[in-house]
Design a protein around this nucleic acid. Structure first.
Length: 706
DNA sequence: CGAATTGAGTTTTTT
DNA sequence: ACTCAATTCG
């Protein structure tokens, strides 16, 4: 594509951002303003016109999904292949750098990467040893994580500490944690960033090498960077200043995990002469949706004001429904979903239900199930977090790296081989006494026969097993997985579904070496989520960031949920809740429907709920505002719930009930899903197995009741 | 060593 | 209400 072609279809601001090639540039991109478009076109322009090699453009995103999407879109713009390009997540980019240069910091380059749960088990182990209440491990882990994300060393933390006992203990755990990681030859996610920054700090020659290598730095979702990530980018860019950062401070919703919006503000200080461009034309939503979301976000102070506009027209008003209890809310949402679906304009995949906390999905799911509407809950446990998958990966890690104590602890008795806590304690002691890894300690115990024969026998079996698998080091990852499963008899007495998962794991490993595979599973959280079926998406507001749907429901717009009660007394956090709400609102393209319930069960307590304070900021003229005292329209069946079954209002006598069977001359036998309309316009929705769901005008479809 | 029972706590999440 | 985890019992 030529320079001219790359500009086609861009608005003036986008074009300006595209054509600014030298020096720092900050693009404040409102929701739905086509930021990815600008980034990808920029990338294409740099490689095509400026003849910059893809290997000289350092491009970072936060998620793999974003990185892949970007790669795809770029490769459709330029015909060259992107081999050797540097487009990836912060973590994968840092991994790449560290794999080649971490030895400068005294680490070995074959480190393994610990995920959240590995980190948790290591911290629990340390707490146990230091005799600190173990149940605190989650809090401790997250404190340490945020210290590392802010590049604070244990020493610095200690000196800045308030001298209260707990901080001292925390620092101790922190030191110990880093120490253990090192002994295990492992890095956690925070280390990947932190150590890369440290590498640049302490080794100017290495920094110089990368500065020369990367002529341009592109940062996506800049508002989500934490301090370490920002330092990283700053290091790379401060030589030539060719940094191109894209973000939206209004969509900063990850403060709780260390994101610092102030990086956007600092940016103008750190890179003098920065050009700031705002993208305010929105290509996603109707004007009504933009007005409503704008009225919400404009109440936040300290923001880069952006006023989104669209040429799409006003569109539907935004719906707000206030219902008596959460079940009513769910029912209302589901009924509306069905109504919309049956009108035929939108499919289920075009709709999403968003909520503040995962717990809220339950009621919605139940209501959807009752109506037989297909749905999927987005988020939740990722494939690689499943126990059986993690177990097998632990075996692989241990084989590649005998120092990996965390993996060893995980699988030493999985599947059961009679090695319990007593034996493990003995091993731990031996390892501590000699300053060797657990694996070495086991070897020693076996060699010196310093335990009872039964224990030695069991340990010996384990040793032989690991040694046997270690022999597979050079075989392919999928071979190795197969062998691990066989040698450990892992699949025995495992449920069918879990065996399936292992098969899936093997398939996903095909074609990679063990090292590559381990890297990938650490840095890629979920398998590519395929979504071929037509189903409603359910997810939290956080998960919805970056996505868009023609029809969006946001449920539970109540005080206590949005803003969440734990945030309600902290001003900063209320601002973040407001942004979160804003993110949710701006996901909608055509139809936006907000709901809330007057009474709701939260943690088994029935609570009287107030409408969210944010609702006060929405101008009523953009909304259909409906408060329901009780559920009026009860759809024939399913109204046996207490309270509002009184209106047995079967409005029209439909000839077909949901669930009854019919025969169609062409499609055969099907099940009636729904029946609506009246008179000559009576429509019936039938699911024909193997054919799919059909909507038929009763008048023309020659249905036969069976 | 492993199963069963009791008890505490309860946001959001990517890598 | 429900989950997850620790402790206790067999």
């Amino acid at each position: 594509m030529s320079k001219e072609e790359l500009q086609n279809g861009l608005n003036p601001q986008q074009r300006e951002a595209l054509l600014h090639t030298d020096g720092p540039l900050l693009v404040l991109a409102g929701a739905g303003s086509g930021k990815t478009r600008v980034i990808t076109h920029k990338y294409a322009l740099l490689t095509k016109e400026e003849k910059v090699s893809p290997s000289s453009i350092f491009t970072v995103t936060f998620t793999n999904k974003a990185a892949n999407e970007m790669k795809e879109r770029i490769s459709s713009l330029i015909s060259d292949d992107l081999k050797g390009c540097w487009i990836g997540t912060f973590h994968s980019q840092c991994n790449r750098i560290l794999r080649s240069d971490i030895t400068a910091l005294g680490y070995r380059s074959e480190f393994v990467i610990y995920d959240e749960s590995d980190r948790h088990s290591l911290i629990r182990h340390i707490l146990r040893e230091l005799k600190i209440y173990e149940a605190l491990y989650k809090g401790v882990a997250s404190r340490i994580s945020s210290l590392k994300a802010s590049m604070v060393t244990p020493e610095e933390f200690l000196s800045s500490g308030d001298g209260f006992g707990f901080d001292e203990k925390l620092a101790k755990v922190y030191i110990r944690f880093q120490d253990e990681l090192r002994r295990c030859n492992a890095l956690d996610f925070d280390d990947l960033i932190m150590l890369t920054v440290r590498l640049f700090q302490e080794h100017p020659d290495v920094l110089q090498k990368y500065r020369e290598k990367f002529a341009y730095i592109l940062v996506d979702e800049f508002q989500d960077t934490n301090r370490a990530q920002y330092q990283l980018v700053k290091f790379l860019a401060s030589g030539h200043g060719n940094i191109f950062a894209v973000g939206d401070d209004d969509q900063s919703i990850y403060r709780f995990r260390g994101a610092e919006v102030k990086n956007i503000l600092n940016f103008e200080k750190d890179f003098p002469g920065v050009k700031v461009i705002k993208l305010e034309q929105n290509y996603r939503s109707t004007q009504n949706i933009l007005d409503v979301s704008g009225s919400i976000i404009s109440k936040n102070p300290k923001r880069n004001v952006k006023t989104l506009w669209t040429d799409r027209g006003r569109g539907e008003k935004v719906f707000f429904y206030w219902l008596p209890v959460e079940e009513d809310e769910a029912k209302y949402v589901v009924r509306t979903i069905k109504d919309i679906y049956l009108k035929g304009v939108y499919n289920y995949r075009d709709m999403a239900v968003l909520y503040r906390i995962n717990l809220q999905s339950r009621v919605i799911e139940e209501a959807l199930r009752r109506e037989g509407i297909p749905y999927r809950v987005v988020g939740g446990m990722s494939f690689y977090e499943r126990k059986e998958v993690k177990d097998i990966i632990a075996y692989l890690r241990l084989c590649v790296n005998h120092h990996d104590n965390v993996s060893l602890r995980r699988i030493i008795n999985t599947p059961h081989r009679g090695i319990g806590s007593a034996t493990l304690n003995k091993i731990e002691q031996e390892s501590k006494r000699r300053g060797i890894s657990l694996f070495e300690a086991i070897r020693r115990i076996c060699k010196t026969k310093s335990s009872s024969q039964t224990v030695i026998d069991k340990l010996d079996v384990f040793l032989k097993l690991i040694n046997g698998i270690s022999g597979l080091k050079d075989s392919s990852a999928s071979e190795a997985i197969k062998s691990v499963v066989e040698l450990t008899s892992y699949a025995e007495e495992l449920e069918e579904q879990r065996i399936q998962n292992l098969t899936e794991l093997m398939i996903s490993a095909e074609g990679s070496s063990i090292d590559e595979f381990l890297d990938r599973v650490s840095l890629v959280t979920r398998l590519d989520e395929s979504m071929p079926d037509d189903s409603i998406s359910l997810m939290t507001l956080h998960t919805a960031k970056g996505l868009e749907f023609p029809v969006v429901f946001i449920v539970g717009i109540e005080e206590g949920l949005i803003p969440y009660f734990k945030s309600a007394d902290n001003e900063e956090e209320v601002h973040e809740e407001r942004r979160l709400f804003y993110v949710g609102l701006t996901r909608a393209k055509d139809i936006l429907c907000l709901t809330g319930a007057r009474r709701r069960r939260i943690f088994s307590k029935r609570q009287e709920q107030e409408p969210s304070r944010f609702l006060k900021d929405i101008p009523r003229e953009h909304c259909h505002w409906v408060e329901k005292a009780a559920c009026k329209k009860v759809s024939g069946n399913g109204s046996k719930e207490k309270g509002f079954a009184r209106n047995k209002a079967v409005v029209y006598a439909f000839p077909y009930k949901t669930g009854c069977r019919v025969r169609h001359p062409k499609w055969g036998i099907g099940v009636v899903r729904d029946c609506y309309g009246k008179g000559d316009d009576l429509k019936v929705c039938v699911n024909f197995p193997g054919v799919g769901i059909k909507r038929l005008a009763l008048k023309f479809a020659h249905l036969e009741r069976i």
